[in-house]
Simulated assay, not measured.
Amino acid sequence: MDNSEYPPFCFELIIMKKLLLAARFLICVVSLNAAAAGSIDAGDINFLLFYKGHSGLLIKHQYQIDPDNCGRRDYYILPNNHPHFSQIYALLLAAQTAGKKVSFNIDGCVEGIPAITHVGLAKQ
């Protein structure tokens, strides 16, 4: 079969279809990755722990999930290198002492533990 039998735009259509298929696949992969991060509803802080071998504050919250499949659902971690570590630590201590509810955003894993990226303090 000779390529001259087909109009030139047929090959362009085939290439465009393949590119669209690849783009759809990439969009699906990116959206699945973005959906992995999670929001944690406002709840009580049950336990705060600095534990040797971990590079951050371990937090036991009323609602424990593992949206990124880190492997642990018993704690969240606030990494020491978080840009607002000191402020968030102070907020968590105050919330736990006053019995206020705290919400989190979780994204990624640190040392196999879901990592806290954002913290909110709920008014009761």
Rank of each mutant, 00 (worst) to 15 (best):
M1R: 08
M1V: 12
M1E: 09
M1F: 10
D2E: 15
N3G: 09
N3W: 12
S4M: 08
E5L: 14
P8F: 10
F9L: 14
F9T: 11
F11G: 02
F11E: 06
E12Y: 14
E12K: 14
E12I: 15
L13H: 07
L13P: 00
L13E: 05
I14Q: 11
I14C: 11
I14Y: 09
I14G: 05
I15K: 14
I15E: 15
M16S: 14
M16L: 15
K17H: 09
K18N: 14
K18E: 12
L20P: 03
L21G: 09
L21Y: 10
A22N: 07
A22V: 13
A22G: 11
A23L: 15
R24F: 13
F25K: 13
L26M: 10
C28T: 07
C28F: 07
V30W: 08
S31W: 08
S31C: 13
L32Q: 03
L32M: 07
N33G: 06
A34Y: 03
A35I: 06
A36F: 02
A36C: 03
S39G: 07
I40M: 05
G43V: 01
N46T: 12
F47K: 13
L48G: 04
L49T: 06
L49H: 05
F50M: 13
F50Y: 15
Y51H: 15
K52Q: 15
K52P: 06
G53L: 10
G53W: 11
S55A: 11
S55R: 11
S55V: 03
G56Y: 06
K60N: 00
K60G: 00
Y63G: 00
Q64V: 02
I65L: 09
I65W: 04
D66E: 05
P67L: 05
D68E: 12
C70A: 01
C70R: 01
R72Q: 11
R73S: 13
R73L: 14
Y76N: 04
I77N: 01
I77H: 02
P79T: 09
N81E: 09
N81S: 09
N81M: 04
N81T: 06
H82G: 04
H82N: 11
H84A: 14
H84K: 13
H84I: 05
Q87A: 07
Q87T: 04
I88N: 03
I88Y: 11
I88S: 02
I88D: 01
I88P: 04
I88W: 03
Y89H: 12
Y89S: 10
A90S: 14
L91T: 08
L91C: 05
L91P: 03
L91I: 10
L91K: 06
L91E: 10
A94P: 02
A94E: 14
A95L: 12
T97Y: 13
T97F: 07
A98R: 12
A98L: 12
A98C: 07
G99Q: 02
K100N: 10
V102T: 03
N105Y: 08
I106N: 04
I106Q: 01
C109K: 00
C109E: 00
E111A: 10
E111W: 09
P114W: 06
P114R: 05
P114Y: 07
A115Q: 08
I116E: 00
I116F: 03
H118M: 12
V119G: 03
V119H: 04
V119C: 08
G120R: 09
G120C: 04
G120Q: 13
G120I: 08
L121A: 02
A122F: 15
K123N: 15
K123T: 08
Q124G: 12
